[in-house]
């Protein structure tokens, strides 16, 4: 599943500016890009967002069509369904059916999906808690794409410990420095500190200016 959920580009071959082939973008992040055919577009920026696994426990009324009421909004939201366990013999105290679903979708779309489920009359009993609870946002300025973005992200990512969950890049021109907003999530403070140290090392090595947040404790 591609991590890129949107590239805000202007599809205009006449306009002056920076022209990148889509192939280059694929190469830049190392992830499949939704477009297959090669075309020249002017790319203003790329927004990358990782899918987050979320487990949901839903309560359905024991009558026909209810499972569809739950599945349809999930499918429409673009989420991947990882597993569904639908145990007919386990019922809640009020006699509703319990369905456990694990899905994968960008975190920012979760709230929208919850609303859609509720609108379909599905009760959400539990939402799997996100285990990466510590969040920090940074802004990076420099030649972010030219200096191997995949490497930058991979070095910070430690599965289930600390991850780059969001990356938004704006490129004013091919030779000009890009600006990126990067969000790191980690399980707790020490892991976050480690991820930030890694990011700072990368910034020195790749000549990127890193702007970090000043504490919320003020």
């Amino acid at each position: 599943m591609p991590d890129i959920i949107s590239a805000y580009c202007e599809n205009n071959g006449e306009e002056e500016g920076v022209y990148l082939s889509i192939q280059r973008t694929i190469y830049a992040y190392g992830n499949p890009y939704p477009f297959q055919k090669e075309e020249i577009i002017r790319i203003r920026g790329i927004r990358l967002q990782k899918n987050v696994r979320t487990s949901l426990r839903l309560e359905l009324k024991d009558k026909p069509g209810q499972l569809l009421a739950a599945i349809e909004p999930i499918s429409k939201s673009g989420a991947n369904i990882i597993t569904i366990s639908h145990q007919r013999d386990t019922k809640s105290v009020n006699g509703a059916l319990i369905v456990d679903i694990v899905i994968s979708l960008p975190e920012t779309r979760l709230a929208e999906l919850m609303d859609a489920l509720r609108a379909n009359g599905v009760a959400i009993v539990r939402i799997g808690t996100e285990h990466l609870t510590c969040t920090k946002t940074f802004i990076l300025i420099g030649h972010i794409l030219h200096t191997d973005l995949t490497d930058t992200v991979n070095r910070i990512d430690k599965k289930n410990i600390a991850e780059v969950t969001e990356l938004d890049i704006v490129m004013p021109g091919m030779e000009e420095p890009s600006t990126a907003k990067l969000t790191i999530k980690a399980v707790s403070e020490p892991e976050m500190t480690q991820a930030v140290l890694t990011l700072k090392e990368i910034a020195v090595e790749k000549h990127l200016l890193i702007i970090n947040q000043i504490g919320g404790g003020l």
Partner: peptide, 26 residues
């Protein structure tokens, strides 16, 4: 670290989440 490399995009991105960018001495 000075401010001469800051881009307008950086300030716009900061603004999206209710932030500013300022030169802070800590």
């Amino acid at each position: 670290t000075g401010i001469s490399d800051l881009t307008v995009d950086a300030l716009l991105m900061a603004e999206e989440t209710g932030h500013s960018i300022r030169l802070i001495a800590t």
